[in-house]
């Protein structure tokens, strides 16, 4: 029991250091550029999926300007434009988490390829789960609804709604675990680089 408690404490300690890793990395363009692109790209994608497949279907059926209008609408939706606050917040935070994760992975990958191994799969899993969980569960427009509908006939929307909730929760969970791991690596890399730089400066002065 004591060991478990220590493990949990250590996990939260590392999560705290992961947050500090993000703060330290925010000065490097190897982090903030991919993070920004990831945040905007993933946020736009989640907004496009927020009405099921209707946006994609319309993009395919519209002309260039029409498609551009729909994509621009989804892009501005990342900042809450025309969005209901409660609809916007989960998308915003998921996109922020995913963007930060992408930024951290690129940063760690550029410094040490081996340490970033496996994290890219996590980004894919988070993205896939988040998209599967998006849409309106009550209205039956989640991507999962037709699939569930072929298995359960009567209460398919309710089952799809429940599953969407579980899947979105899983996406957040995987994202947090990956964030802790890569964020902690980032913290260690930056701290170690800073230490080595200072040591070298001292040696040069001496």
């Amino acid at each position: 029991m004591k060991k478990l408690f220590e493990k949990i404490l250590r996990w939260f300690d590392e999560l705290g250091l992961a947050f500090r890793g993000v703060l330290l990395a925010s000065r490097y363009k190897n982090f903030y550029l991919p993070a920004l692109l990831g945040f905007l790209g993933f946020g736009t994608l989640l907004n496009l999926f927020s009405g099921g497949l209707s946006s994609f279907s319309l993009i395919g059926a519209s002309g260039f300007l029409g498609a551009l209008k729909i994509i621009a609408n989804a892009f501005f939706g990342v900042f809450g434009v025309n969005k209901n606050l409660l609809d916007w917040l989960p998308i915003f935070f998921l996109a922020l988490l995913q963007g930060t994760l992408i930024g951290l992975i690129v940063f760690v990958y550029k410094k040490n390829k081996e340490k970033a191994e496996g994290a890219a799969e996590s980004v894919g899993i988070v993205a896939g789960l988040a998209i599967l969980g998006s849409g309106c569960p009550t209205c039956g427009t989640t991507l999962l609804a037709p699939l569930i509908g072929t298995i359960f006939s009567g209460s398919s929307f309710a089952v799809a709604g429940l599953l969407s909730g579980v899947i979105t929760f899983l996406a957040v969970l995987v994202a947090i675990f990956s964030f802790k791991k890569v964020g902690f690596e980032t913290y260690a890399i930056i701290k170690s680089e800073n230490y080595n730089r200072k040591k070298k400066n001292h040696e040069e002065i001496a």
């Binding site: 907004n47 609408n73 025309n82 209205c139």
Partner: peptide, 9 residues
């Protein structure tokens, strides 16, 4: 198609 995005005008 099905589904509607509430941000659509």
């Amino acid at each position: 198609t099905s589904g509607y995005d509430p941000t659509w005008d």
